[in-house]
Amino acid sequence: MANHLAEGDSEGSIWLQELFRRHYTRVVTWCLRVTGDREEAHQLVQAVFVNAQRHLETIRGESMVSTWLYSIARRECIAYLQSRSPLDIAPDDKARKALPDDLDSHPQRLFEFHGSVQAARALLDRELNQIEKRVFTLHYGDGVPLQTITRLLGLQNASGAEAYLVSARRKLARALEQWRANEKLTG
């Protein structure tokens, strides 16, 4: 099927229609959640499908079409978010205000804790709950703004992803305090 699509023949056209029929709503919905704006979502959907058509040869079987489309949509959405605020991860990050300042003033301590990025990943995995991990990963790993994370994960608490970021950072600060207390005891 992918060959027909790539060659643009009539069978490919029919299959392309079927592909869009099955997956169109989820792409539109996803892009709307990423942008929070219908005009921008409209442009993002176009970009996703243009890229999908350009990379039809990379489809790995019909059972993986939605995963393939997810990969393309994810890449386009991250590019879109980066183009809007390339370096500013969280311009409206009020979360810092309520925090112990350890992680702000001594960020290296998070990694002194265990000494490697892999160990830090294990620390994050151990200390944070599932939603906090998702929020942290999307925000710090991919630079996704908090409002977008709130929409993508369907968080319905009053302050959305921001609350989970605050909670996660408090837990990490507590873990650092515990680590320091143990160091004093053993040192």
Partner: peptide
């Protein structure tokens, strides 16, 4: 791995994405 757990969650959310009532109007417009 928080990264892979998040990736799997997003993949599941994408594959299950249906407009919520407050999104339907915008989805129709697009």
């Amino acid at each position: 791995c928080p990264r892979c757990q998040t990736e799997l969650t997003l993949l599941n959310y994408f594959e299950n994405a249906v407009p919520r009532p407050d999104e339907e109007r915008a989805v129709r417009w697009i």
